[in-house]
């Protein structure tokens, strides 16, 4: 079912204003996915409108490229990235915002792609681990992860790379260990790569990553 054209989008009401009106900024953050400690809410989001339940067109900007998808509004950004765009770096692990393996950037801030709808990402800049760097031209954080062996099975690694790269971008060369721990507090690793992740993060920050 396509979007009903007879229902005009409610202009001028942002979701942020809506939630603030309801006195539930915390709920907004929960719906937007994980917001790292210390990060402020980003720019005003997509205007509020009713969509679905049938498939709708969604224009996404992913890793700098414009991509138009036709997805049900209930499709998560994670599913759209993985199944529609074949960007499988972000991983499904916990099914709902508990492990950080699907961490991507939305307008430069880390979010859990499993807890953002694809339609919510419309008009915003999505950056995945593939967009950060590629084999042969690694982002300094990715290079430091390889050099310090901050990975084992590697399933949590793309998420950790995105969280660490966010912390490095945020804090620069002065990045502290405590800031890395906070930035990655929502990223679970089962192989126990954390000590090497800490080393890699500080190394990348020191190198101006």
């Amino acid at each position: 079912m396509a979007e009903d054209p007879s229902v005009p989008p409610a202009r001028g009401i942002t979701r942020r204003a809506l939630f603030q009106g309801a006195g539930a900024a915390a709920a907004a953050r929960a719906l937007l996915g994980a917001t790292p400690a210390g990060a402020e809410e980003g720019p005003a989001a997509t205007p509020w409108r009713t969509q679905g339940p049938g498939a709708v067109d969604v224009a996404l900007r992913v890793n700098g490229a414009e991509r138009t998808l036709r997805v049900e509004p209930r499709v998560t950004l994670l599913e759209a990235l993985r199944l529609d765009l074949d960007l499988t770096g972000a991983k499904p692990v916990c099914d709902r915002s508990q492990c950080g393996a699907c961490t991507v950037w939305l307008d430069g801030r880390t979010v859990h792609a499993c807890s953002v709808l694809a339609v919510e990402a419309e008009g915003r800049e999505v950056t995945t681990v593939e967009g950060l760097g590629q084999p042969g031209r690694l982002h300094p954080v990715q290079r430091a992860f390889v050099e310090e062996d901050a990975l084992q099975c590697g399933f949590c690694t793309p998420g950790l790379v995105m969280s660490v790269a966010w912390a490095v971008a945020q804090h620069g060369p002065g990045l502290s260990e405590a800031q890395v721990r906070r930035a990655c507090a929502g990223n679970l690793c089962r192989c126990g790569t954390y000590p090497h992740v800490l080393k890699a993060a500080l190394k990348a920050a020191g190198q101006g990553g």
């Binding site: 993985r82 199944l83 074949d86 960007l87 499988t88 770096g89 972000a90 991983k91 499904p92 995945t128 681990v129 593939e130 950060l132 760097g133 590629q134 084999p135 042969g136 690694l138 990715q142 992860f145 390889v146 050099e147 062996d149 990975l151 590697g154 399933f155 690694t157 793309p158 790379v161």
Partner: peptide, 21 residues
Amino acid sequence: VPRVDGEAKVTGAARYTYDVH
């Protein structure tokens, strides 16, 4: 010796079973 598949794993290029479509 750094992991030979390290680059694939830090860039999302590594395909796990879950990623095979």
